[in-house]
């Protein structure tokens, strides 16, 4: 189908983009790669009055080393994350999750910032961002601010971004000594996650010193599996210990029931996938 008509702005700086959004009012929308937005427009599930295309804003693209963290521009594409040596070295979980997004074509246009701002609870990158304790730099008419991953995802398709704000970059702390894994479960290869688990583990002397586990599609936002993390912290790095900890994965979760899976099944999957993700992340066999 054909989208409803809209106006189009193509700013070349963050300030221009913010101004264009403000001028566009409530019904203005940011266009990054468009891989989530354009299908929605085509089905006429949304009809923004103006699209602000941030594809031409240089500041928003690219990965840079900022000491103890990587700073990744919001319009850095999934395909870029897969190839970037800094990401491979310091945040391989992001690349692994990005590799699970859509398909090659989608990854050639879809952006990190677009996925995070779209905040689909079934998306792969929000969970990874939460597991990595990323923080989000946001620009608006009043200047810039930083929001933690925990505060960024507010609800289903809803983030801390105000209508006149844009996501500038994502800051991902380097985690020397940590290893990670993203485990995704879906119906067909190109589908959204039924459930996904992003796990990061730091091993020390044969046991698990610390772990961070985030769940995809187990609620209206990506969720930290706090009970699993607590149970893993200081536990033995064994299959049994991990399985026991993973049994807590669905605690506190309120997963959806939909055409693909019931809430009960998702709760069960969360435990199995958490076990597998943590074992893979920790290299435990």
């Amino acid at each position: 189908m054909i989208p409803a008509a809209f106006d189009y702005a193509k700013p070349s700086t963050v300030d221009e983009a913010v101004r264009a959004l403000a001028e566009g009012g409530e019904d203005a929308k940011v266009l990054a790669g468009g891989q989530s937005l354009i299908p929605v427009l085509r089905l006429r599930l949304a009809a923004p009055t103006v699209l602000v295309d941030v594809g031409g804003v240089g500041e928003l693209r690219g990965v840079r080393d900022d000491g103890d963290a990587l700073v990744i521009g919001a319009t850095t594409r999934h395909a870029d994350l897969l190839r970037d040596p800094l990401v491979a070295r310091h945040a391989p979980l992001l690349a692994q999750a990005a590799a699970q997004v859509g398909d090659r074509q989608v990854r050639h246009l879809g952006t990190l910032g677009g996925s995070l701002s779209h905040a689909d609870p079934a998306g792969d990158l929000p969970g990874a961002a939460v597991a990595l304790d990323a923080s989000f730099e946001i620009a608006g008419p009043g200047g810039r601010r930083t929001v933690s991953a925990a505060d960024f995802f507010v609800d289903f398709l809803t983030t801390a971004l105000a209508p006149d704000e844009i996501l500038v970059s994502v800051r991902v702390p380097k985690r020397p000594g940590w290893t990670t894994h993203y485990e995704k479960f879906n119906r067909v290869a190109q589908a959204w996650a039924i459930v996904g688990v992003a796990a990061a583990v730091r091993r020390e002397n044969g046991s698990i010193a610390e772990a961070r586990v985030a769940l995809t599609n187990m609620g209206s936002t990506p969720l930290r599996a706090g009970a699993v993390e607590q149970s893993l912290a200081g536990s033995a790095a064994t299959v049994d210990a991990v399985a026991s900890a993973a049994g807590h994965a669905a605690e506190g979760a309120d997963p959806p029931s939909d055409a693909f899976a019931s809430a009960d099944y998702r709760r069960h999957l969360a435990t199995v996938l958490t076990r597998r993700a943590v074992l893979a992340a920790g290299g435990i066999a």
Binding site: M1, L51, R104, Q190
Partner: peptide
């Protein structure tokens, strides 16, 4: 109309994209 089937794939700037999901 949902960017699934890939029939519309072209190379844009040398990389494959679904031309039904690009303005």
């Amino acid at each position: 109309d949902t960017s699934n089937c890939g029939s519309c794939t072209v190379l844009m700037g040398g990389e494959s994209v679904k031309s039904c999901t690009v303005l």
